Computed example of a mutant assay.
Amino acid sequence: MPPSSRSATPWLFLMPALLLLSLSVLIPAVLALLMSFTRSGLDVSEPLAWVGLSNLRRLWADAVFRRVLGTTVLYLVGVVPPIVVSSLGLAILVNRKLPGIQLLRAAYYTPVLVSIVVAAIAFRWLYAENGLLNGLLATWMGSEPIGFLADPRLALVSVMVVTFWKGIGYYMVIFLAGLQGIPVELYEAAALDGCRGWRVHLHITLPLLRPYVVLVAVISAIAATKVFEEVFLMTQGGPAGSTRTLVYYVYDQAFRELDISYACTVGLALFLLVVLLTLLRFSVAQSSRFL
């Protein structure tokens, strides 16, 4: 086979996937970028009006966007550290050779298999004023019903719990894969030197799992930045806009205000935030090689 044919063969296998990726991701992304410099709505019969940087200037002066961006960052900060620490702790727990440990692993991973729609509706019922959680609080403490989703001070945290519950098992599996790649001899040598308990994980587990910690932190951060289903199904961005995130703001502008061009501009800001997180992941991973 000629060298040119051999070099073209991989591209022939990749062509269907590249075509599908172009139609579903690349081309819509380019069109959304172009539309952010126009003024357009849902009426496709109206011609696009080129407005240049007008949408970007509007975004810069948009107080609602700044509030939504702050809520998104708060969501990220409130979800990522707990989910990284908890999933790592669960991975260390289920990495032990104990009777029935496979069932325990399956139990912790089960929430990942639950549809986010089902999870959001179930937690909405759980948080209701006449729901299970308020019923237990009234029985045990005699307290009045708490508006978990109606109180602006509690609504965002209540939605964060759903994201945490849904994702902890997935990240646990990533850490578990890293733990099972650590040689057992290192722990045996540490035990002979008198290093036991949490000190073993501090001096052996954490340094060797540093790439996995970075990976989980960035993946969970990107997922928290793009959260939508939980907000849409549980709070609709309320109360008083306290749970409105960037992705929900894009939806709000596109399908409620029918301002497609401005929605694309907000989506561009979201894209830049995700790119920033990705670059941060690569820079941290690159620097960790030299530590």
Rank of each mutant, 00 (worst) to 15 (best):
M1L: 12
S4D: 07
S4M: 08
S5R: 14
P10Y: 03
P10I: 01
W11V: 10
L12P: 06
L12S: 05
L12F: 14
F13T: 05
F13E: 02
L18P: 00
L23Y: 13
L26V: 14
I27L: 15
P28K: 04
P28Y: 02
A32T: 03
T38I: 10
R39I: 11
L42V: 13
L42K: 11
D43E: 10
V44N: 01
S45M: 11
S45T: 14
E46M: 10
P47Y: 04
W50Y: 11
G52K: 06
L53S: 14
S54V: 07
S54N: 07
N55T: 05
L56M: 12
R57P: 01
R58H: 02
V64T: 15
F65K: 02
R66K: 11
R67G: 14
V68S: 01
L69I: 09
G70S: 13
T71W: 04
T72H: 02
V73A: 15
V73S: 09
L74W: 09
L76F: 14
V77T: 13
V77E: 11
V79D: 02
P81N: 15
I83Q: 09
V84Q: 04
S87N: 04
S87V: 06
A91W: 06
A91N: 02
I92P: 03
I92G: 03
N95G: 13
R96S: 13
Y108Q: 05
P111C: 04
L113Q: 09
S115M: 07
A120V: 09
F123P: 07
R124T: 13
L126W: 01
L126D: 01
A128T: 00
E129D: 04
G131Q: 01
G131L: 03
L133P: 03
N134L: 00
L136T: 03
T139K: 08
M141Y: 12
G142A: 00
D151F: 07
P152S: 05
L154Y: 01
L156S: 06
L156G: 05
L156E: 03
S158N: 03
V159S: 13
M160Y: 10
V162W: 08
V162R: 10
F164H: 12
W165N: 12
Y170D: 02
M172Q: 04
V173R: 01
I174N: 01
F175Q: 00
A177T: 14
G178Y: 11
L179K: 08
L186S: 01
L186N: 00
Y187M: 07
A190G: 03
R196M: 13
R199P: 07
V200K: 12
H201R: 09
I204G: 02
L208S: 07
P211E: 04
P211T: 04
V213N: 11
V214F: 04
V216E: 01
V218N: 04
V218G: 06
I219A: 11
A221N: 05
A224R: 06
T225H: 01
K226W: 09
F228A: 00
V231L: 08
V231G: 05
M234N: 05
Q236S: 14
G237Y: 06
P239N: 03
G241Y: 06
V247H: 08
A254T: 10
E257W: 09
Y262A: 06
C264D: 03
C264M: 05
T265L: 06
V266R: 00
V266H: 00
L270A: 13
L273S: 08
V274C: 09
V275G: 14
V275Y: 15
L277T: 07
L279W: 12
R281H: 15
R281A: 15
F282S: 13
S283F: 12
F290C: 10
F290K: 15
